[in-house]
């Protein structure tokens, strides 16, 4: 399936990590325009990011995040060459993980 796109680069003494994920992010409240039926909820519930093996961000999401989510965060003390791992899990149990190196 989809994978997470990660771009991580140093700005001063901190790293900025930008991620793009592929996901429909359905709230469960939207009606299908054709059938009039509610589209079942399908959204990323949790996102965890590690830098150099340490968890730096542990996020909980609802359906209020836009589809194909974008997320950026900054980490002080990270170094060029550190490995960044970002993973998500959705409300239907699907999981996705990607990694990148801080450039």
């Amino acid at each position: 399936m989809s994978s997470i796109k990660i771009r991580a680069s140093m700005t001063g003494d901190s790293a900025e990590v930008k991620c793009l994920m592929n996901h429909p992010m359905e709230t469960g409240l939207r009606k299908d325009a054709k059938t009039g039926q509610l589209v079942p909820a399908h959204f990323i519930k949790s996102v965890v990011a590690t830098v150099g093996g340490n968890t730096v961000l542990d996020a909980q999401w609802g359906g209020g995040i836009s589809r194909n989510p974008y997320l950026a965060f900054k980490v002080k003390g990270a170094k060029k060459g550190d490995k960044v791992v970002v993973s998500w899990e959705d409300n239907q149990g699907a999981k996705e993980t990607s990694e990148a190196t801080i450039g």
Partner: peptide, 28 residues
């Protein structure tokens, strides 16, 4: 939090191990 959304809570980010007080995302 999107105060007037049907489901107001959008996201919660726990930050640790050097993560700065900064998050950027896109919401509905």
């Amino acid at each position: 939090v999107g105060e007037k959304n049907n489901l107001p809570l959008i996201a919660q980010f726990d930050l640790m191990n050097g993560a700065e007080g900064f998050v950027s995302t896109r919401i509905k």
